[in-house]
Design a protein around this nucleic acid. Structure first.
Lengths: 216, 216
DNA sequence: CATGCCTAAACGGTATACAGAATCAAGATC
DNA sequence: GATCTTGATTCTGTATACCGTTTAGGCATG
């Protein structure tokens, strides 16, 4: 099924297809996403495409010009810095809130770590890394916090995908490092206080900062 | 001009009108916002109304049922708690980032405080209060942070408006208290370190917590 | 060669039409 | 009396058509 033209609704279908197209880099950053052209390619009318473009703008994958044209988002190092600041603001809080829940059931985190150890490619590791954090956000009980983080994740995926394709991936974000820091976080959730979990997450994300590349 | 049917675009017009209608409480929480009805009332077609409803969902003023119907958002004390947690996560960081900028030019904050002292009604004070915080968010230089906060502000306005209309306003959030705490923040921006500003903002919002009402 | 203009094509904003799904209320059934 | 059914109504999802604006490219002009 290369893409059933009816994943519940045509809007949802258009959103999925467009998101993948953008994150996978099949549409170059800055390129125009004309409604008629996209509609023709996806086999739907302009209306679902329109909604998809608005939805993806909210997710940070598309940006509109003043005249209403939609373009594939371009990301600069400054954008990365913004995302980083927001992760640093949100995720430690989420870790603190999620601590009680995760203390009683950390199986999802364990499984994620196990899957990461089995991962074959570096891009797979980065996705599992984000999944690990997603588990914590989902356990924090704050629906708005989760929602905000998910839009950040979309942009991060966009960024990371582009990094990978441009071979700019730093080698020190290895599988081993990811697994070991996640193990440490897991230990914290198992045995330490929510405040300690918050601090650990803060440090973890601070460490992740060295990833910041200095070019586009 | 009871509402120029062309504030740049009909979508923008529909967004403005609907937002005001919801925040002002002219549409009761939980009431259905049927596209055809709203379109007829606003004198536009369904298309701009549709976009307005999606936009307002993003801003937290409207929520959709699983079957795609749009309703005026209902807020519970739990929602208030969520918003509070997010303010606590975002605003201190914004204060730290905005500190250098505000140190060199705090005129907007001064003017806001002066306007607050001249305010006539309590509802006006709460709006100026949010304006004060908005100035800081706008000065922080992180566009995404500002965007996230703005959606929180929408929900806060909704909440506060409803509180006022139901006469549940706590009296200890007085004009004097608002002015004095804002003055303290201003002093911080003028003479203290970014880290100190961050701490002050954290305390300020913690204090604001007592406002949390225990009913709907 | 550079620059401004002008025209044709492309695009987005909006209205309208139609089809299918959800909703609500009245009536039938137990 | 309560519940299930059913049909009319309402609503959303989507397609299509039209119009004004933006855009891009070629041509004329300096």
């Amino acid at each position: 099924m290369k893409g059933a033209p009816d994943s519940s609704s045509r809007s949802a279908y258009a959103i999925d297809r467009l998101r993948r197209r953008i994150i996978d880099g099949q549409s170059a950053p800055g390129s125009l996403l004309a409604e008629v052209a996209v509609a023709r390619e996806l086999g739907v009318s302009r209306v679902p495409v329109r909604e998809a473009l608005f939805a993806l703008e909210r997710d940070g994958l598309v940006e509109f010009s003043k005249t209403g044209r939609a373009y594939v988002k371009e990301l600069s190092p400054g954008d990365f810095e913004e995302l980083y600041v927001l992760r640093l603001a949100l995720e430690p809080v989420a870790a603190r809130l999620a601590a009680p829940e995760l203390r009683s059931d950390a199986s999802a985190l364990e499984e994620n770590i196990a899957a990461t150890e089995r991962a074959g490619s570096l891009i797979e590791v980065t996705h599992l890394d984000l999944d690990f954090h997603a588990i914590i956000l989902e356990a924090c009980g704050n629906a708005r916090l989760l929602k905000l983080w998910r839009s950040l994740r979309n942009e991060l995926e966009l960024w990371l995908g582009r990094l990978h394709r441009s071979k700019q991936v730093q080698t020190h974000h290895t599988l081993d490092e990811t697994v070991s820091t996640h193990r440490e976080l897991l230990k914290s959730f198992r045995s330490e206080s929510p405040a300690a979990c918050e601090r650990k997450m803060h440090e973890h994300i601070l460490g992740w900062r060295e990833w910041l590349p200095m070019d586009s």
